[in-house]
């Protein structure tokens, strides 16, 4: 009986054959919103995402799987995507900065960033995650107060293959 059990066990061995799991790491970029931006209204004629003005800076995370495959192009707003009717011009300012990195070498991104009009370009030379924050400020013409209502503006975050 003992021999029979051993023989049956040996016959069952092929059922334990290894199943391979294969994978492929390819160049990939993922953009996620870490924090939504909110406009503060420190004075009647100004809307600003700066915390000192009562706003919240939007934070965007870029994950890249392979080094030196993408650039991060982040454009701060130069107009409202929706607002109450405005009769005067709005002066816009903005900037984008690196706020957090998953790899220490990414801190060099801030020094090497290039500003083209309202777009800040970061060369993502290392694999990993980088967090960017975008400051945005809108000042209404001739220090007029902004009309009451909801104001929204778009930050365009692009990950472009090199």
């Amino acid at each position: 009986m003992k021999y029979l059990v051993t023989a049956l066990s040996l016959l069952a061995l092929p059922a334990l054959a290894n199943t391979p799991i294969t994978g492929n790491v390819e160049a990939k970029c993922v953009i996620q919103t870490t924090k939504d931006g909110v406009y503060g209204n420190p004075i009647a004629s100004r809307l600003s995402t700066t915390p000192a003005d009562g706003g919240v800076l939007p934070v965007i995370r870029f994950d890249v799987s392979i080094a030196d495959s993408y650039t991060a192009n982040i454009t701060h707003p130069t107009s409202f995507s929706s607002s109450p009717p405005l009769t005067d011009t709005v002066a816009w300012t903005g900037s984008t900065s690196v706020t957090q990195t998953s790899v220490s070498g990414m801190s060099a991104y801030e020094e090497a960033k290039v500003l083209v009009d309202s777009t800040t370009i970061f060369n993502l030379t290392l694999a990993g995650s980088t967090w960017f924050s975008t400051a945005s400020s809108a000042t209404y013409g001739a220090s007029k107060p902004f009309a009451g209502g909801v104001y929204t503006a778009l930050v365009q975050a692009s990950c472009v293959a090199k």
Partner: peptide, 29 residues
């Protein structure tokens, strides 16, 4: 490219539109 379409908001805020672009003239990975 694929670009995210954002919904209209009921709060004064910045919305984030994300765009991922592949290159047709690059070297295949």
């Amino acid at each position: 490219c694929t670009t995210s379409k954002v919904r209209k908001s009921s709060k004064s805020r910045t919305l984030i539109s994300s765009r991922i672009c592949s290159r047709l003239d690059g070297e295949p990975a």
